[in-house]
Computed example of a mutant assay.
Amino acid sequence: MKGKVKFYKESDGYGFIQGDDGQEYYFNMHDLKVFDGVPRTGHMAEFTPVPVAGKGRKPKATDITVSVPPRNQASGLPEPMTGFPVRTVRERSFPE
């Protein structure tokens, strides 16, 4: 299954992935199969979902492969997100 890292607390080594199915999955650093670095909010993740028994417990993600979003070659920044309204700033003219 695919999804995005929703939250990761580096000091405690756990986080959550928002799956493409809309479900939230718990994971800890030991579930990361392939990744050099720290998972950050918005990183893409591919994982295996595992149901967890117990009332109120979230399903778990295992065998997680995290990939960093591609960077813009010119600026070195991540590609801009799409689907969000763009706010433009109007130029003001002041009396002299």
Results as ranks from 00 to 15, higher is better:
residue 42 G to K: 01
residue 82 T to Y: 08
residue 79 E to R: 14
residue 78 P to A: 05
residue 32 L to M: 03
residue 68 V to Y: 06
residue 54 G to Y: 02
residue 75 S to A: 12
residue 45 A to S: 02
residue 47 F to L: 09
residue 62 T to R: 11
residue 48 T to D: 05
residue 52 V to S: 09
residue 62 T to C: 05
residue 63 D to E: 15
residue 40 R to S: 09
residue 31 D to H: 11
residue 60 K to F: 01
residue 68 V to G: 02
residue 79 E to M: 14
residue 58 K to Y: 03
residue 78 P to N: 01
residue 71 R to Y: 12
residue 81 M to K: 14
residue 77 L to G: 00
residue 49 P to Q: 05
residue 40 R to D: 08
residue 72 N to W: 00
residue 59 P to R: 12
residue 52 V to A: 10
residue 52 V to E: 06
residue 38 V to N: 09
residue 37 G to L: 12
residue 77 L to Q: 12
residue 46 E to V: 15
residue 72 N to S: 12
residue 78 P to K: 08
residue 28 N to Y: 10
residue 55 K to M: 13
residue 39 P to D: 09
residue 36 D to M: 10
residue 72 N to E: 03
residue 65 T to Q: 05
residue 69 P to A: 03
residue 43 H to Q: 01
residue 31 D to N: 13
residue 29 M to N: 15
residue 49 P to L: 04
residue 43 H to Y: 14
residue 71 R to P: 03
residue 76 G to P: 13
residue 30 H to D: 08
residue 31 D to C: 10
residue 75 S to G: 12
residue 54 G to A: 08
residue 26 Y to G: 02
residue 30 H to Q: 11
residue 54 G to P: 15
residue 61 A to M: 08
residue 42 G to I: 00
residue 31 D to V: 07
residue 38 V to Q: 07
residue 26 Y to F: 15
residue 34 V to L: 06
residue 52 V to W: 07
residue 70 P to S: 06
residue 42 G to Y: 02
residue 51 P to W: 00
residue 78 P to Q: 04
residue 58 K to F: 01
residue 51 P to T: 00
residue 80 P to W: 03
residue 27 F to P: 08
residue 73 Q to K: 13
residue 30 H to A: 12
residue 60 K to A: 03
residue 62 T to L: 09
residue 51 P to E: 02
residue 70 P to M: 02
residue 77 L to M: 13
residue 31 D to I: 04
residue 48 T to P: 02
residue 56 G to K: 15
residue 45 A to G: 06
residue 78 P to W: 04
residue 50 V to H: 13
residue 63 D to C: 08
residue 27 F to S: 02
residue 26 Y to Q: 07
residue 64 I to N: 04
residue 65 T to C: 04
residue 63 D to V: 11
residue 38 V to H: 06
residue 41 T to I: 14
residue 69 P to Y: 04
residue 31 D to Y: 09
residue 81 M to S: 11
residue 73 Q to F: 07
residue 79 E to F: 15
residue 48 T to K: 15
residue 62 T to Q: 13
residue 73 Q to D: 08
